[in-house]
């Protein structure tokens, strides 16, 4: 009788699969508001004064933080899903994974810095 030992990752990716869908649904809802506010009515949405007014309100800060966090996570997790579909050597995949986490954290902090400066 053969015995098999599983050498792969213990992480099946199920949590990421689930969170990818949840974050996607939230992003679609926030995106509708974002489009109506910023793109359909560019004059009221994009002036410095209007942006400052929003950035000084905790509600909009919360929306913006949600948007940046979920958007980056959803995008980078999706990119990781694409990369995982290819048969890469473990060290290549691990390097890309670490670089993507660093990239995500860098842009997350840049976004956070912009939102929380006001």
């Amino acid at each position: 009788m053969n015995t098999y030992k599983f050498f792969g990752s213990r992480n099946s990716g199920a949590k990421n699969w689930y969170l990818q869908r949840i974050s996607g649904i939230i992003l679609v809802i926030v995106l509708i508001g974002h489009y109506v506010l910023m793109h359909a009515t560019p004059d009221s949405g994009h002036t410095y004064k209007a942006v400052m007014e929003r950035l000084h309100s905790p509600f909009w800060k919360g929306i913006d933080l949600t948007f940046v966090t979920l958007g980056l996570w959803h995008g980078l997790n999706g990119t990781w899903n694409v990369i995982r579909d290819y048969h890469l050597k473990p060290w290549v995949a691990n390097t890309i994974y670490v670089l993507m986490i660093l990239l995500g954290l860098t842009f997350w902090f840049i976004g956070l810095n912009t939102i929380l400066s006001f």
Partner: peptide
Amino acid sequence: HRITGLGLTIYIMVHIIALTGLLKGEAAFN
């Protein structure tokens, strides 16, 4: 879905960088 997704991931990063212009004041932002 993957092509648009990869494009949008790059875009959100460009967008985050572009909005740092808010920190430079009104004239620079305008």
